[in-house]
Every structure is written in C-alpha cells, then in structure tokens.
Amino acid sequence: MNDNAWIIAIAASIGAAIPIALAAVGAILHERSGVLNLGVEGMMLIGAMAAFLAADAWGNVWLALVCGVLAGGALGLLHGVITISLRANQIVTGLALVIFGTGLAKFLGEPVNGLKRPVKIDPLEVAGLGDLPILGPVLFAQDVLVYASIALVVAVSLYIYRSRAGLALRAVGESPAAADAQGIAVSRVRYVHVLAGGLLAGAGGAYQALARAPSWNQEYTINGLGWIALTLVVFSNWRPGRALIGAVVFGFALRSQFTFQTEGIDFPPQVWLQMAPYLLTILVLIVTSSPGARRRLGAPAALGVPYSRDER
C-alpha cells in the first residue's frame, strides 16, 4: 500500500473538481433566478475553445482565461435573450445551446484540433508548505484558481443567503409575480444571474482547457463535465457548498480509477465510471423535466417558467 499514491490522488481530485464546481455554482445562480440551464455543457465548450484559441494567439494564460469567461458569458446572454425576453421553452433552448456550443467549438477549434495547449496554469508553491506530509500536496500545492474557486463558493453562498440582492434573487426564483409586486425588476435580476451562469461555465471550461486537458480536442476536452455539473446542481438542492463537495467526490471518482489499479485493488469496474456522465445526463433530464420531482428536490418554484407580467 502506497499512502503517497492516495494522497496524490486526493490532491488531483480537487483539481479535477474545479471545472465542474465553477460551472455548477454558475448554474446555481442561473437557476436560482428561475431560469433552467440545460446549456452548461455548451457554455463550457465555448469557454474552453475561446480560452484555447486565445492562448494559442497571444500566449498569455490569464488573457486566455478572461476570453474563456467572456465567451461563456456571451452564450449566457444569448440564453437570456431567448428565455427571458422571448420567453421560449427553457428545456428546448437549453438543449439547443448544447448543440450550438458543440458545433461552434468544433468549427472554430478545427485549426487547433489536437494541438498541445500553448500555455498552462501551473500549481503554486505556498511558501514551501507543499512539501508538508499529507496536507502539503492536498492543500498547498494547488493552482491559484483552485483557491479562487473555493473562495467563490463561500462568497456565492453568503450572497444567496445573507445579502439583499440574494434575497431578491431567491424571490424572483420562487415567485416572480410577488417579487414584481415588491418592486424587484424580475427581468433584470434574471439577466444578471443568467449572465453570471454563462461567465462561470465559461470559467470552468477555460480552466479545463488551460489547466487540465493537455491538448485541445472538441470531443474530449469537456466530454460531459457540463452534465456532471448540472447533476450536482440538482443533487446539491441548488446549494453552492454542497455542489463543491459533490464536485470533489466526482473528481475523486474520475481520477481514482487508476490509483485503484496501481494499488492492485480490483475495483471499481471502469465501465461504470465511464458511463457515469451519460447515466447522470439521463437522470438530470428526467428530474428537471418533471415539475413534481423538481419541487421535491428543493428547486426554485418558478424554475423553468417564463415570467410575463401580462399573464399574471
């Protein structure tokens, strides 16, 4: 038994969790405003692709990250126009966004398909603490985005539950009509949070492209992470802290299959791990398409329902 192998596996699970956690926290903000977001996978792909192209063009990893975030935000804004202003069916448009994002990422990413990423986000060495036994690799040898993401989860939790704006957000998600009567600008609140969802999904995709996947590939760089993020949104009951914990568990499930092999443990069957994103996608679609199931899991009451003052 090699303890070090497990410690490194756990440390690596945290890195693997970050793209999922960023996208999930974004989707929580997005959906807390009452707008369903099945398009996360597409937003992550666009964010990843934009980040990779920017890194390829300018060779600056932080500029690339910003480009990925903004590209995700652009798709979020598009989703906002369609679902908030045009009040289209949120399930159909979310899925269309995935198809759109996939196609666009493939088209624009074609010239760099298979290329090694030109720059990458490297781990920090926090004042030599990375060499501490056990805690060192897990806590003190991660990259700056890992720490930033954890801080973000705390900040978003405080925002949702402890701030006035968060209260307005929850009101809009639970009962837009009542919020409207209180003088809250429903559409504006929804736009802001749908945009935030896009920006954070873009950040997750960009992190995946710049820190995780060694080369750009349309089919493999994101490969279901957006769907895993959506599962976490549902099973965290739309709570950021729980989503982060779920992401780390997922990261460990994805990463540990090889440590099980090197440690000679005949578990778990690889096929199940590889099926997981697809099984979870089916589960998410079932749960989010059924209003009854949504309510039981603590979804915002107005989730998936376009708001129109005329129809009150």
């Binding site: 369609i82 045009l86 289209a88 448009t93 269309a96 966004l97 198809i99 759109f100 996939t102």
Partner: peptide, 12 residues
Amino acid sequence: AAALSLALIAAA
C-alpha cells in the same frame, strides 16, 4: 424564439 432555436440546431 422557436424558429431561432431551430436555426441554432440547424447551424450546429
């Protein structure tokens, strides 16, 4: 909106 989403699908 429906037409737009169809266009998105078609584009992809």
